[in-house]
Amino acid sequence: MSSRLKDAAHLIPLVLVVLAGVAVFLLFRQVLVPKTFGQYGHYRAAALDDIRVRPVSFAGQATCAMCHDEVATTRSKGKHRGVSCEACHGPLAKHADDPAAMKPKKLAGTGLCQGCHKADKAKPAYFPQVVPAEHSGGAECLSCHQPHSPQMQ
């Protein structure tokens, strides 16, 4: 019995090495995994605070409507009622905070409109699409359409 054990004794350091490896791993895990990891889900809960302190860039259309109620009303009656102001105008939180400090750029139509309306096989068939060259011979879209109420009466 004892000699049997002696002949297997060389396996003990092996087992110890393996166990030490596991122990080191668990220790590292203990130290390296952020404390708030897993509090709400499979992520670091403190990341939410990190994200919260980042500056807001979109104001949201409800905010735009507080000052630009005319435009908002126009839009709500037309086909672009589902398209948010900042989808076309870009992020404007700074402007909404202080209109004098940041004046939005003036938008050109054609490029903007084509981004959504240029005919493309990948777009669902129900979505209104035009082939600009055929539709208007490449003329500026705004020369006929109103951006906030685009359909032609």
Partner: peptide
């Protein structure tokens, strides 16, 4: 070697088995 020099036939048989 992990500190062991035991390569007796019996130790080797154990190695073989493991």
């Amino acid at each position: 070697t992990l500190g062991s020099r035991n390569i007796s036939p019996r130790a080797r048989r154990i190695d073989e088995r493991v």
